[in-house]
Each structure stands twice: as C-alpha cells, then as structure tokens.
Amino acid sequence: MTTTYRVTLRNRNGVPLDVAEDEPIYAAALRAGIQLPIACNYGGCITCAAKLITGHVRQPKGTALNRRQSQAGFILLCVARPTCDCVLDVGVESHRGLYQNPFAIAGNRYPPDA
C-alpha cells in the first residue's frame, strides 16, 4: 500500500492535501481543485517553485533550482513528492528571494574573462 502524507498549504488558509509518496504535490493540489503555477511539468523551468517551511520532499529530475535556491528552501511542485508531512507556502507570493539580478550581486563576474 502507498503511504500518504499530509501537505499543508500555509498561505492558502492552511488547506490540507493528502499526497501519496509517489505523487507530485502539484498534481495532488490540482486534484483538490487548486490551480498552482505550472509550465514545463518536468522540473526544468522553475515556474512551479514553492517554499518548504517544514518537512522533506524527493524531487527526481528537478534541475531548475541552483544551490542557493535549494538552500533557501525552494522546491519544484511538479516533481516534488513528500517523504513526510510537510508545510508549504505556494504560488508566486512564495517567490520572494527566488530570483536575483546577477549584476546586483557583488562577487559575480562580467565579462567572464575580465
């Protein structure tokens, strides 16, 4: 039997989702009638990013996040499957700090050979 975990969408009035361990959280939300951001649906494009507040996920094939973004707790809901009960902030509202202007970051180099 598949194990199911409780995934709580904190910034959507704490709505609880029951998500099977092999089901992407995006798909579970859609099943519950909640349309979250989506685009490539394979982990390559960042559109579906959300912020993990507590818990853990597995995201096979999720390539769209760099180290900084992963360390900040961002996950990709199109590929993320829960491995325990989780609390998330979702939607574009959860994207604060996701994007950076690379020319605003001290230590970045441009042109690359300068």
Binding site: C40, C45, I46, A64, N66, P102, R109, Y110, P112
Partner: peptide
C-alpha cells in the same frame, strides 16, 4: 538549453 535559460539567467552558467 531550455533547462539552463528557463529557470533564469545566471552568470555562473555563462562562465
């Protein structure tokens, strides 16, 4: 590659 540019522009990727 789409997997490079779709998530955003990173100077590290240029390097």
């Amino acid at each position: 590659a789409p997997n490079t540019f779709m998530p955003g522009f990173d100077l590290e990727d240029v390097g």
